[in-house]
Nucleic acid binder design. Sequence first.
DNA 1: GTGATAGGTGTGAGATCG
DNA 2: CGATCTCACACCTATCAC
Length: 402
Amino acid sequence: MSNNNTPKKSPKSQESSSDTDDLISKGIEDEAYSTFKAAHSLSNIYRDYILSSPKSLGQHVFQHSHSERYNASKGSPSTLQSYPHNWLCPAIHTEDSVSEGNVISHDTIEAAKAFSHFVQDAYALSQINQDFIRHENKYQLRLDQEDLWAKFHYLGNEMILTRNGRCFFPLIKGDISNLDPIKHYTIMMDVVPVSKRRLRFRNGSWNYSQKSEELSPIGLYKMYKSEEQATYGENLMKNGFSFAKAKLSNDQGKITDIDFSKELITQVISEDQSNHLIVQSFYRYVPRIHIVEHDTKDLLFHDNLLTTTFTFQELEFVGVTHYQNQAVNSLKKSYNPHAKGFKEDIAVEIPLKDKWTLEPPKIEFWDLKSAVMDGLRLFDISRGNVKRKRGEESSSSDEEWH
DNA sequence: GTGATAGGTGTGAGATCG
DNA sequence: CGATCTCACACCTATCAC
């Protein structure tokens, strides 16, 4: 695409796909067009939410605005509407268009505005549906080897990353109760960044790196299905769930970019069938476990799928290629049966307790699309942040992040 | 129970990167 | 030159067929 024709119509999401095609045929400068396309696609998704599921969208926007508070001087959902459009859509702009001072086309800005209008509409709807936001979770999720997770968390857990993928240890598996025995459920997991900045292990503890490090984009955000595919609640309650085959990899060659022209949810959940979750070393992540409820055996992405998300802070880990903390290394060797050959006689120093238990998890109740969008947003922020120029580092602390 | 095979571990030397 | 990554390796468990 090389000519300079700019479309006269603003790319509002109400436009049909033929309008989009029209824009393509008229031609827009490459980078601006890809940005516009992403924004346009997001606008459509938000419009769909408003039309089909105002309640769940309200919840998502509440989460969205709430967690974006580090961008605002003082953030709360009630201040959302008072912010300018570009505050509401940080994920729309490509890093290059913003951080390197390139001119953003009129179309990009219009698309961004269209997007944020929908966000604002959705937020207004959420005000009417506060009861949904206050929904009380009914499921109960228990992790296996709770005590072990708690001990690793006490030390500051690390997970080894390899090109070919390395399993989590302890394994992420457990039991669920209070499901409807005759309904279908799919259990999913994603791994999202907790910190915006790179870490270093110095003098026996993890600290945030002082250097402004240029890191490659993290790439693919992925929602990983458990080994138990869609099944009846009865089976899940009997057999539990397991992510024992999920592996962590640092091989960015395995990353495929998300194509915003496709149906986003379908793409994120079903296209990549490998068991690899790609993360970067020396960043802190946390796995989230999602219980997705659906009426039929097939997981229909376009339906309004009730999703309950559990985040245990004790599952946080730093991705590493070699263990940094000797105590974590020793504890892994003590408990992982596959590392028996390296087991040491010296016990790791951990305070004695009657029982090591987990804190109650953070529970979010929304629909699957919102959960996926939230995961994408977290990765986008991480990506945008590492590309930020020196001196433009957000003044927000990482304590604010979580 | 036994043996074969596949695959999950941490190790450490050397390679690579900035 | 230090920090980080890669790979082959020994050692182990898990699974399967017999």
